[in-house]
């Protein structure tokens, strides 16, 4: 067997081995339940994830425009790009994100919001790795202040409308604990997880996706009620189906 043939077979084996693995979005960011009316933002986010034992390397990026329509409703339109080996780079999806803040901050022991995110994959490209079809992601966004510490936990359900390859309903979560040291510098730990894998809505632990790591956040005030918020996280995968490392970032220009 020639060297090139061997490499090709190895590549095929790797692809087949990951065929049933769901993509892991390196550009995931934390949703928060609070809404500021009238606030407009340009949202730039992205990330790059290395390969894992059963995950291919993948990079994602997105650009969105969001607006606080009312005291309790924030909406954002996004366009997302994806690079995945060996498919390459391409337009990935259009997203419409909505956050409904329920009640007022501090009104109850935990601040509550609801996420409703609609995603339509860009299907014009035949090379698109998307096979899941359009989806809706929803679930409660919870936040709790304990002095200068802020804790977030979001339980998210994703339902795919045309899924043929994967389980049509998947469960995941996002979590963060951060210390609010000062407006331009906050530090914390983030976790992004998915209980589902392949055809199982609730997969055994080794088949779940779990990424945990430190995050640095902050907001820089600019003149005339504008600001620049950022957060950068370095996440480490703890299961075979997680990327070994993910570097993710988000910058929001608010005006």
């Amino acid at each position: 067997m020639g060297r090139a043939t061997g490499h090709a077979l190895l590549g095929m084996a790797l692809l087949l081995g990951t065929e049933r693995a769901l993509a892991v979005n390196a550009g995931d960011y934390l949703f928060t339940p609070t809404v500021t009316q009238g606030e407009r933002e340009i949202d730039l986010y992205g990330g790059t994830g290395s390969s894992g034992d059963k995950t291919r390397a993948e990079s994602n990026a997105g650009l969105g425009f969001g607006y606080g329509v009312t005291q309790h409703w924030f909406t954002e339109l996004d366009i997302a790009y994806r690079w995945q080996s060996p498919v390459g780079t391409g337009l990935d999806a259009f997203e419409w994100e909505n956050i409904i803040q329920i009640g007022e901050s501090g009104q109850w022991p935990v601040d509550i919001g609801m996420l409703c995110n609609v995603e339509k994959p860009y299907e014009a490209s035949r090379n698109s790795p998307k096979t899941e079809g359009s989806s809706i992601r929803f679930g409660p966004l919870l936040q709790k202040d304990i002095g200068k510490v802020e804790v977030n936990f979001n339980l998210l359900v994703t339902h795919f409308f045309q899924s043929s390859e994967f389980s049509s309903t998947q469960f995941g979560y996002q979590s963060q604990i951060k210390y609010r040291y000062s407006p331009p510098l906050e530090v914390g730990i983030q976790a992004f997880g998915r209980f589902s894998s392949g055809g199982q809505a609730w997969a055994p632990y080794p088949q779940q996706v779990i990424r945990v790591g430190p995050v640095v956040l902050g907001r820089l005030r600019l003149p005339q009620e504008r600001s620049l918020a950022y957060n950068v996280g370095f996440l480490m995968g703890t299961t075979q189906h997680s990327p070994d490392q993910t570097l993710r970032m988000q910058v929001e220009y608010e005006f």
Binding site: S105, Q107, E150, R180
Partner: peptide
Amino acid sequence: TPEEFESYSLNREKHVPPKSQITLFIG
């Protein structure tokens, strides 16, 4: 004119429309 109630130490940022009231819960 619209105003705002913003406080990092209280972790609150709220828009207050003109001629309107909003309610904050603090503490």
